[in-house]
Design a protein around this nucleic acid. Sequence first.
DNA 1: TGTATCTGTATCAATAATGGTTACAAATAT
DNA 2: ATATTTGTAACCATTATTGATACAGATACA
Lengths: 139, 139
Amino acid sequence: MAANSQFSMALHILTLLARAGDENVKSECIAESVNTNAVVIRRVLSQLNHAGLVASQTGAFGGTRLAKSPEKISLCEIYNAMACGEVFALHAKSPNQECPVGKNIEAVLCDLQKEIDRSVGEKLGQYTLAHIIEKVSHN
Amino acid sequence: MAANSQFSMALHILTLLARAGDENVKSECIAESVNTNAVVIRRVLSQLNHAGLVASQTGAFGGTRLAKSPEKISLCEIYNAMACGEVFALHAKSPNQECPVGKNIEAVLCDLQKEIDRSVGEKLGQYTLAHIIEKVSHN
DNA sequence: TGTATCTGTATCAATAATGGTTACAAATAT
DNA sequence: ATATTTGTAACCATTATTGATACAGATACA
């Protein structure tokens, strides 16, 4: 497949967990809603775990639940947890350093990239998981 | 290769064209500065052509030059010309429509995606090619 | 203690996107 | 006419994502 849909999956998963409250939710159960394989879900959950957004338990009656309340989880946190990368990529191979443009363009692009990424983070930071849950419930 | 660096290449190319003024620049010449193949450059130029940002001439002494002054080319126009897609992707496969979350999450994500993309466009729209040229020259 | 259950992760296959390369038709200046 | 240059098609290599199987380790419970 092509484009990275992990952020979308993460929002879907977190919405499901929020609705389950304190209950542990199994990856198999989440996979049914997302319509994919349970391992794909566990891979996303692993990243959300490391970011401290969810808590998982192994063993019988194990599963995953939210580690923070939905109001305290910003979409920016989720986006960063998934390490989705940047809005645009820099040159694949370094440009010709003997050309005045080639020599300087990388630094300029890098600054621009950081600014755009920061802008996306700020925009995402305006919303929390609670907002998403509310919109999903109102449709 | 992995990430899409066409927007970076486009900015590099347009900066080179701006410096050449009225002169036609050959794809081979641009390729040397970008450190890639001339066909890769012509592929990017083709998109910039369709967007009306550059004008190309075939034949001997042909090449490409800017179609508008750098002050009148916003980074948003360039970004859109490259059709780089979206900041994040929606679900690869449609979620389970029998699940209340699966049924509604797609529309919510689609709205969010549009809002984030619009935000990126606005941020990029704050700059023009002239800004990039100036920064490249000042380093 | 033994069993069933569930996570975490390694591994492999399938698909798709990007970039690099060669090739060649069409256009154009001289 | 000839040389030059663009515009594309076609193909390959590399890489990222997703999907799937397998299994070790953890855990609840009888």
